[in-house]
Simulated assay, not measured.
Amino acid sequence: MLQGDERLDYLLAEDLRIIQSPSVFSFSLDAVLLSRFVQVPIQKGQLVDLCSGNGVIPLLLSTRTKGTIIGIEIQERLFDMAVRSIEYNKLSHQLQMIHGDIKEIPKQIGYAKYDVVTCNPPYFPTTSQEEINRNEHLAIARHEIMCTLEDVIRVSSQLLKQGGKAAFVHRPGRLMDILTLMRSYRLEPKRIQFVYPKSGKEANTLLIEGIKDGSPDLKILPPFIVYDEHNEYTQEAKQLLYGDKV
């Protein structure tokens, strides 16, 4: 089941396992934060996760909703890891992975029919060819090589039904770009939460959720702080990562 340098890691709070590879992709706290931040229908619904990587967000969301979840990933190696993780956790009845380019996905799976779209997109503008050559998998995951922020927001809007929710995790430095693009593609920003590495530090992560054709009313949620003054996880971060096992 495992290939090369892959390992089987625990998603502790959810009691799931996930296949990871340090040379290809390992999920970060950002994915966990987004999976907990987004508001999802509990009993039913159709959800899509764009730029899914090794399927971490669909796996995490499966514990919060009984709805169906489709993950989209362009890199074949990551797509394959996600498929095997879904099979290992016996979640094939609820989760589906599609190997493809997010820009083509609305044509493939349908327009304006989904309740929730999530995305942990590449954060950084296109990198140098030298860096891409060094590790193509990581470069594509981190840099806007295969898709831009605008692609992500446009496709999210195309997939969502009216009143559907889109949620993204990104860097605070792109906040104005995100807000501008969301409004231009009919996604009205409704909730924002800033994530801080420690109290007294600048925010380094941004969580944002919008509603397609929603009315203007933006809420700024309380800050999420990852580490305390002893460089240990705060109680809130422990709960996020370990659930009742803290």
Rank of each mutant, 00 (worst) to 15 (best):
M1G: 12
M1S: 07
E6A: 00
Y10T: 11
E14L: 02
L16H: 03
R17A: 09
I18P: 03
S21L: 05
P22N: 10
S23A: 08
S23F: 02
V24P: 08
F27H: 07
L33A: 02
L34V: 10
V38S: 06
P41M: 14
P41T: 14
P41N: 13
I42L: 05
G45Y: 14
S52R: 04
N54G: 13
V56I: 14
P58A: 09
T63Y: 07
R64W: 11
R64G: 03
T65P: 02
T65H: 09
T68H: 11
T68Y: 08
Q75K: 06
F79I: 02
D80W: 00
I86H: 06
Y88N: 01
N89H: 07
L91C: 06
S92L: 08
L95Q: 09
I98L: 15
H99F: 02
D101E: 13
K103Q: 14
K103F: 04
I105R: 11
K113H: 13
T118S: 07
T118F: 06
C119P: 14
C119W: 14
C119Q: 11
P121C: 01
Y123H: 09
P125N: 09
T126Q: 15
T127G: 14
S128Q: 13
S128M: 00
Q129F: 12
E130N: 12
R134P: 06
E136K: 15
H137M: 03
I145L: 04
C147K: 07
L149K: 14
V155A: 03
Q158S: 05
L159P: 04
L160D: 08
G164A: 09
K165Y: 13
A167F: 05
V169K: 13
H170L: 15
R171C: 06
P172D: 12
D177R: 05
D177A: 15
I178K: 00
M182F: 13
S184N: 01
Y185C: 06
R186V: 10
E188L: 02
I192N: 06
Q193M: 07
F194T: 02
E209W: 02
D213G: 09
L221K: 13
V226M: 01
N231G: 07
T234K: 11
T234C: 01
E236K: 01
A237C: 15
K238D: 08
L240H: 13
L241K: 06
K245H: 15
V246K: 04
V246T: 09
